[in-house]
Structure formats: C-alpha cells, structure tokens
Amino acid sequence: MTVVRIANATVEFPIYGGSTSRSLKKVLVRAATGGIMARDAEERVVVRALDNISLEINEGDQVGLVGHNGSGKSTLLRLIAGIYEPISGFVEVKGKITSMLDIFHGTDLEATGLENIYMRGRVLGIHPSKMKAIVDEIVDFTGIGDFMHLPMRTYSSGMRMRLMFGVATCVKADIMLMDEWLSAGDASFLEKAKQRMEEMTSEARVLILASHNIILVKERCNKIVYLEHGKIVNLEVA
C-alpha cells in the first residue's frame, strides 16, 4: 500500500531581504510606478529547493534521503510533513506523521524541562490525560532527575539533547520523519538512544530519515533516495 505519494512537486522559496527587501514601500512604489519597476517583481530571487520531485513510499519502507548540504533533504521532509505546500504537483499522505526535524525548535529555555515536555506533548498531539505516563517514562529514560524542575537554560547541551530526544521519541506514529539529529550526547547516551530509536522505528509503518551518513543509511534503509540540487538523481531499492 502506498503511504506517501509525491508527484511532480516543486518547492520554491522567495528570497527577501538584501536587494529585494520585504518592504511595503517597495511594493507600493512598484504598484504606483508600474512599467519599469514592475520588472522587479519578475526578477525576484527564488531558490528552487525541490524541482519536480516524484516519489512513492509504501507500507513498511525505511527510506533514507542522502545528499549534500542544501540538496533538499530537509525541505523534502517538510514537504512530506505538510509544512510546505508545493507550488505545483501534489503530495498525498495516509496516516499520522511525527516529525523530528529540528528537535530544539520551539523549546523555551526559560521554562523548566517538565514544562517543555508538556508543551511539546501538546504540540505533538498527545492527549493531556496520557501525558502523565509519558512524562514518567521520559524522566526515567533521560536520567535528568531533579534538573527536570529547573529552567532549561541551566542545562548542558547534552542534557538538552537527552530531554528533547526523549520527548521526540515518546510518540508512536505511523510515519516518522527524522532529520540528522543524533549528534550531541555522550557515548553511553548515544547507545541508549540508538536502542530507543530501534524500538520506535520498528513500530512505525514508515520511516524517512535524512542523513549525510551513507553508512548509517545503508545499514537501516531499504530505499535510498539520492538528492542533488533539489532533484532525485538516483533511487536504490535494496
């Protein structure tokens, strides 16, 4: 069964700032002066992050997205997550998505670890009545202990990593999207994290993982998508 279907999807980012600043005045002046300045509108700088992408992902697939910086891996994940709607083509997804794109996005450093867990839980769509059990599990998994009640700004980067990783991996989802994120944390935690990821991904129907690390991708994915300049240049099916 096809879970994710992308057909001829293109994503373009308008770039504002610099010479084409996002100023109201410029648009008004352009509207008022017509002709000459209007060309400015056409010459607007656009970055085509994904160019006519087509991809089908089926039940049980573990997909790896591989490519250089700026090749479109993260954008493709965001496209699947529904954050960016394509300017042409379409994306169709069946099932509940959990995205772990940048796990530090949206954390509030002034709030305590516990508050951040609750906030994140709400955002991920966990019912408040189920949070209690999840919180206990996360506290246990991260081993942060009493630091849970202190503001997150007092945490070391490793502790932040643990906490956010714990939160991110507490939801069971049909489709999991992950962006290169296993970077901080000490060796013992890395081992623990790997194990937890293993458990999680084995339960997910579909895993889509973006990474520079071809070795990691090769050992866990059955489909590898090679991206270059926003295009799929190769697709390996194991």
Partner: peptide
C-alpha cells in the same frame, strides 16, 4: 517560527 517550520499545526 520554530513551531511553524517544524510541526504541521
């Protein structure tokens, strides 16, 4: 921004 770019909400 942090939320809009990370989670579909």
């Amino acid at each position: 921004e942090g939320f809009i770019k990370e989670v579909k909400m």
